[in-house]
């Protein structure tokens, strides 16, 4: 049971492949065909539905920033994803370094040059 709780790398890759397939499938099968604006945002669709159900309604507040174009908007969304991905990557990297006791016990990058015998002392990074 304990061996099952250590994740296998290939399963992780398989999960990521499934994600890619699921994301591309609607494009490949042509789910957006015949639509005025294929794959538009669901929020825009809801907005036009509000206009349909409640034609007298006027949005009483406009967004503070009016983005000049779709390109600028997608750029900002890319920025948001980049910031998030950077932080996630940093956190995983730090956690990985912390979880290796051998790295912590070693005084610095110069340590391995002291010779492998030195690390035979108890607590040394013997298993690496």
């Amino acid at each position: 049971m304990s061996d099952r709780s250590t994740p296998r790398a290939w399963v992780t890759w398989a999960l990521l492949a499934a994600v890619a397939v699921l994301a591309v499938l609607p494009l490949a099968t042509g789910a957006g065909e015949g639509m005025e604006e294929p794959f538009s945002g669901a929020d825009g669709q809801a907005e036009s539905l509000v206009g349909e159900l409640n034609p007298d309604y006027e949005p009483w507040m406009a967004p503070l920033v009016e983005l000049p174009s779709g390109e600028v908007e997608s750029g900002l969304f890319a920025l948001q994803a980049a910031i998030g991905a950077g932080v996630v990557g940093y956190a995983l990297g730090v956690a990985r370094t912390r979880s290796r006791p051998g790295d912590r016990a070693a005084p610095g990058p110069g340590a391995p040059s002291a010779g492998p015998e030195a690390s035979d002392a108890p607590g040394g990074p013997r298993d690496r």
């Binding site: 494009l27 639509m35 538009s40 948001q80 994803a81 910031i83 956190a91």
Partner: peptide, 25 residues
């Protein structure tokens, strides 16, 4: 560190607009 990672995870995912089978995204 982990709280930051959880928040950043939310940040990344909510920035990604993905096409759906309904022809919307």
């Amino acid at each position: 560190l982990l709280i930051g990672a959880a928040g950043a995870f939310c940040f990344v995912l909510s920035a990604l607009k993905i096409p759906s089978a309904t022809g919307t995204s």
